[in-house]
Simulated scan of single mutants.
Amino acid sequence: MTDLIIAIALCVAVAIAYAVAALIQARFAHLTVLELVRVPVLWVAIGLNGLGAALHVTSLNFGPLSLIQPLGVLTLVIAVPLAAITARRRATRLELTGTVYTVIGLAGLAMLITTGGKPDTLTTPELIGLIVATVVLVTVLGLLGRRPNASTLWEAVAGGLAFSVCSALCQTVVVTVDEAGAGALLRPITIFAMISIGTFAVVATILTQRSYRNGLSAPLAVTNLVNPASATIIGVALLGESIATTNFQIALAVICALLSGYGVAQLARARDVAATVPAAAPAPREDVPTNA
């Protein structure tokens, strides 16, 4: 029981760290990369993301993945109302309903589509192929997001994909070192994997940062959906894992996916509505005469 309480507490801490980091990033999403590195508070966001990742790994020592993964949606639950509070306004009905549908869908997917089996590692051809494919996909998605008037969700998808590949590469490095010892870190393929992890982590951070420039909720929801979904695909396709589901569970998973999609659409609508609401006209100054 104590381990369960610790696992839940760690998950809440992870969600708070990620949510606060996302809020900080959203404030500066309009800046270029060169401008961002000169913003001290942005390094706080990067530190919070690192802290969240470390706490997430730690939480797996106290609770099963089937519990930890669904609690990841707490990031969205915390971030949406927190964004409204920092903007000194109430969360809109679209934001609330979008959050509810997205969280229910994501939690359902996380509980239904769980992978099982002994942790495996990527072979050298699989690792190289995965990195090359990820570079191509992330580049294409990133370029789609940079088109004039393009949806920022393209970059959110790219960021979620890059984060999930980081996880797969981290698993390969950790398991390899655990089985072969620290000497495995000097292998060329391991060095290549570690360089790729660092590169994808930076790219994912930049892409998610840019995806927040027109609003936080919808891109954050998309990233939270793409990350575990693509990680599951990688696990099944390359790491020898299997999806522990029946036909009934698969049907429920489809329903949950639709709920998540509807929730993201609601959050996107909330962002678009907020962007089109005209600002209130300023009150006339007392020293400026007005017409009778």
Score class of each variant (00 low, 15 high):
residue 1 M to S: 11
residue 255 I to C: 10
residue 64 P to W: 05
residue 222 V to K: 04
residue 120 D to T: 15
residue 183 G to K: 10
residue 237 A to R: 04
residue 214 N to W: 11
residue 209 Q to H: 15
residue 7 A to R: 00
residue 233 I to S: 06
residue 290 T to C: 08
residue 69 Q to G: 09
residue 192 F to H: 00
residue 39 V to N: 04
residue 169 L to D: 01
residue 233 I to V: 15
residue 137 L to I: 13
residue 78 I to Y: 02
residue 28 F to N: 10
residue 154 W to E: 01
residue 9 A to F: 09
residue 5 I to D: 02
residue 224 N to I: 08
residue 158 A to S: 09
residue 273 V to Y: 11
residue 283 A to I: 13
residue 141 L to F: 11
residue 128 I to L: 14
residue 21 A to P: 05
residue 275 A to H: 13
residue 32 T to P: 04
residue 172 T to R: 00
residue 67 L to E: 09
residue 137 L to N: 03
residue 21 A to Q: 06
residue 80 V to R: 01
residue 157 V to Q: 06
residue 155 E to G: 12
residue 222 V to D: 01
residue 135 V to G: 05
residue 68 I to T: 04
residue 282 P to W: 07
residue 69 Q to N: 13
residue 1 M to K: 10
residue 285 R to Y: 14
residue 103 V to E: 05
residue 23 L to I: 14
residue 142 G to S: 08
residue 41 V to R: 14
residue 141 L to C: 06
residue 181 G to M: 07
residue 146 R to S: 12
residue 112 L to Q: 01
residue 274 A to S: 09
residue 131 I to D: 00
residue 1 M to Y: 10
residue 266 Q to L: 13
residue 86 T to D: 11
residue 10 L to D: 03
residue 75 T to F: 11
residue 115 T to A: 08
residue 152 T to D: 12
residue 203 V to R: 02
residue 243 I to W: 06
residue 96 L to G: 08
residue 259 L to F: 11
residue 185 L to R: 05
residue 20 V to H: 00
residue 212 Y to R: 02
residue 257 A to D: 09
residue 225 L to I: 08
residue 48 L to W: 05
residue 258 L to Y: 10
residue 168 A to K: 03
residue 121 T to Q: 10
residue 89 R to A: 14
residue 267 L to E: 01
residue 207 L to F: 07
residue 203 V to P: 00
residue 89 R to H: 11
residue 211 S to K: 02
residue 175 V to I: 14
residue 2 T to F: 13
residue 113 I to P: 00
residue 107 A to L: 04
residue 219 P to C: 07
residue 30 H to V: 11
residue 151 S to C: 04
residue 17 A to S: 15
residue 89 R to D: 11
residue 45 A to S: 15
residue 142 G to V: 01
residue 107 A to Y: 01
residue 133 A to L: 11
residue 185 L to N: 00
residue 49 N to L: 13
residue 87 A to Y: 09
residue 92 T to G: 11
residue 57 V to N: 10
residue 95 E to C: 07
residue 275 A to N: 10
residue 143 L to Y: 09
residue 118 K to F: 10
residue 236 V to M: 07
residue 151 S to H: 03
residue 19 A to G: 04
residue 189 I to R: 04
residue 61 N to M: 12
residue 237 A to Q: 07
residue 33 V to W: 15
residue 262 Y to S: 08
residue 82 L to A: 15
residue 5 I to A: 10
residue 267 L to Q: 02
residue 102 T to D: 01
residue 147 R to A: 14
residue 212 Y to C: 04
residue 99 T to S: 02
residue 273 V to F: 10
residue 135 V to D: 00
residue 152 T to C: 08
residue 150 A to N: 08
residue 14 V to F: 03
residue 40 P to Y: 05
residue 139 T to V: 12
residue 75 T to A: 12
residue 198 G to D: 05
residue 112 L to D: 02
residue 49 N to V: 15
residue 70 P to E: 03
residue 257 A to E: 10
residue 279 A to G: 15
residue 48 L to S: 05
residue 285 R to A: 14
residue 106 L to G: 00
residue 114 T to K: 06
residue 92 T to D: 03
residue 79 A to S: 08
residue 159 G to F: 00
residue 115 T to S: 07
